[in-house]
Every structure is written in structure tokens, then in C-alpha cells.
């Protein structure tokens, strides 16, 4: 009766396309990255084994530390901006009395579905020192605060770049938090209501602690997005001015595809993964170790 499920031919037909595609495109290059990080490799020949040579060079490279710093700035701003605003927005919109809540939700989410190129080009035009929206606004308000947003060597440029990403995906974090908060059963709030707690107290004591799992996901998402940032630099600054907006992924692609140092690029990729794994492990360890149950 049940033997129709034990059918090797059908199983192969069902399983092989996915497994073969995945092995060729994901698993094989992954192993290749790991191996080649120990090689001096130009992407054409087999390369020469140099042990930890790429890594020791990387740890002496100033650019690595600039990139690392920028990754963390990116991650920090994303986290503060998106989780902070996202929480306030999600919880306010959750309140049935808020006027126009569905309109607001849709409006906050729209930038999420746009392509990163459109968003970056749009912000490039807004940041334009002569004709951009921001400087025009300051002019209109009579404030003489004109800025060349993306050309400063200090942290201003990386912050300006990060704001673009923060603006684009705030709605995404909000949607995550909103979905999480909506699934909290009503009865958790009844006792609080009887005790006369304010909305603010209720959220601080009940909603936010119950959302620990959701916050963990949001946090991992923000930090990984920050550490892996690439498209914004590629489109808006090309890592510049100078090397002040480099990130690890940007450095990796430049090493491989501009300088033909494929092995060095692989070493950067390996460092990047280890970093993301480490952060994810730390977050998993410290947040939501035990599920809260009331």
C-alpha cells in the first residue's frame, strides 16, 4: 500500500534538479572561496598556496580597518534608526484609534519594494551640492547650511550613505515588528488594563518583552545588512572620497575584479562570513535565550 512512496526513479527526478543546481552554484563556490583564501590567485591559473599570507596581509591593511569601521557604523545606524522608529511606528499603528493607520503603513513600506539603484540615484540627486533637494530646502528656509554631503572625508559621507539605506528599509522592520505585535493574544493586556496602566507602560512591560524573538530577527537582519553593505557604496560613492566609505564587500569586489587579486578577495569574503556568524551567535546567545511565557 505505502510502497508507492518508495520509488527511486521518481525520487531522483524530483530531487536532482534542485540538489545539482544548489551544489554547482552555492556549495562548490563556497568551498572554493574557503580554499582559495589560502592562495595567491589571479582567477585564471590554479594559483599558489601561501598559507595564511592573505590573512596576515589583510590584518596589516589600513583599508581593512576603514572598511570594518564603516561596516559597524552602517550596522549601528541601521539598528538605531530602524528598530527605534520601527517600534514606535508599529505600536502606534497597531492602536486602532490611530487615524489613517493603513495609509501610513502602506506609505512607510513603499520604499522597501523599490530597487536599490532607483533609491540611490534618487538620493544622489537629493544630496547634490548645487541643485539637490536638501540644500534647496535649507535655502528656502533661509538657513545657510549648505553641505557637500557625500564629499567629506570624515564620517559624514558614510552617515549620509547609511541614511539612504535606513530610509529605504525602515518600513520593513516596522512590518516585522507590527506582525509580531499583532500576534500577541489580547488577554495579555487585560490585567494591565484593569490595573490602569498607560499605553506606554503596557508596551514597555508587555509588548516589547514578548517581542524578543522578533527583535532578535530584526537585529540580526540590520547588523548583517550593515556589515555586508555594498550596493550603496558602489552606486553613490565608489568607496570615496578617497577610501572613506569602503566596506568589506566593496573592498572584496575591488580586490578581485579591479586588481585581479582573487585570493585576497576570497580572504576578505571569509573574514566577512566569520564576522557575520560571530555577530549572529552573540545575538542568539544574549537575546531570547529562553522564550518568555506569561
Amino acid at each position: 500500500m505505502r510502497n508507492f512512496k518508495n520509488n527511486p526513479v521518481a525520487t531522483s527526478i524530483f530531487v536532482l534538479p534542485a540538489v545539482l543546481t544548489f551544489s554547482m552554484i552555492v556549495a562548490y563556490p563556497l568551498i572554493s572561496t574557503l580554499l582559495k583564501s589560502f592562495y595567491e590567485w589571479d582567477g585564471i591559473t590554479a594559483g599558489t598556496f601561501i598559507g595564511f599570507g592573505n590573512f596576515s596581509r589583510l590584518f596589516k591593511d589600513d583599508l581593512f580597518y576603514t572598511s570594518l569601521r564603516n561596516g559597524f557604523i552602517f550596522a549601528l545606524i541601521l539598528t538605531v534608526f530602524q528598530l527605534g522608529l520601527g517600534t514606535v511606528m508599529a505600536l502606534t499603528i497597531l492602536n486602532g484609534k490611530t487615524f489613517g493607520r493603513n495609509t501610513l503603513r502602506r506609505a512607510y513600506f513603499i520604499p522597501v519594494v523599490l530597487s536599490v539603484t532607483v533609491v540611490c540615484q534618487l538620493w544622489l540627486s537629493m544630496y547634490n551640492p548645487e541643485y539637490g533637494l536638501f540644500n534647496k530646502l535649507f535655502e528656502l528656509l533661509g538657513i545657510s547650511y549648505r553641505q557637500d554631503w557625500l564629499s567629506s572625508m570624515s564620517v559624514t559621507s558614510i552617515i549620509a550613505v547609511t541614511m539612504v539605506s535606513s530610509w529605504q528599509s525602515m518600513g520593513y522592520q516596522m512590518a516585522l515588528i507590527y506582525a509580531g505585535a499583532k500576534s500577541i493574544p489580547e488577554h495579555f493586556y487585560e490585567a494591565a488594563k484593569i490595573d490602569g496602566a498607560t499605553t506606554f507602560q503596557t508596551h514597555m512591560k508587555i509588548t516589547i518583552p514578548l517581542l524578543a524573538e522578533t527583535y532578535k530577527i530584526c537585529l540580526i537582519f540590520c547588523i548583517n545588512a550593515g556589515l555586508n553593505a555594498f550596493a550603496h557604496m558602489q552606486i553613490m560613492t565608489k568607496g570615496g572620497p578617497g577610501t572613506s566609505t569602503y566596506t568589506l564587500t566593496y573592498m572584496m569586489t575591488r580586490s578581485a575584479f579591479r586588481l585581479d587579486e582573487y585570493g585576497y578577495g576570497c580572504a576578505i569574503a571569509v573574514t566577512l562570513v566569520l564576522q557575520c556568524l560571530l555577530v549572529t551567535l552573540i545575538i542568539n546567545k544574549f537575546i531570547a535565550r529562553e522564550r518568555l511565557t506569561y
Partner: peptide, 27 residues
Amino acid sequence: LEWRLKGATYSYLLLGLFIPTQVILIP
């Protein structure tokens, strides 16, 4: 369906969830 290595193959494919694109970009 019932086949050998089912669990292992499934886990293998799910590894993809944890691998960022840029890591395998060069190879």
C-alpha cells in the same frame, strides 16, 4: 517520499539560508 539520506539532503539544501551572496561571488 521515502528515500535514504532524506534528512541530510534537506539540511544540506537549507544551508543556503545562511550563506550571504557576496561570500561566493568571486568563485
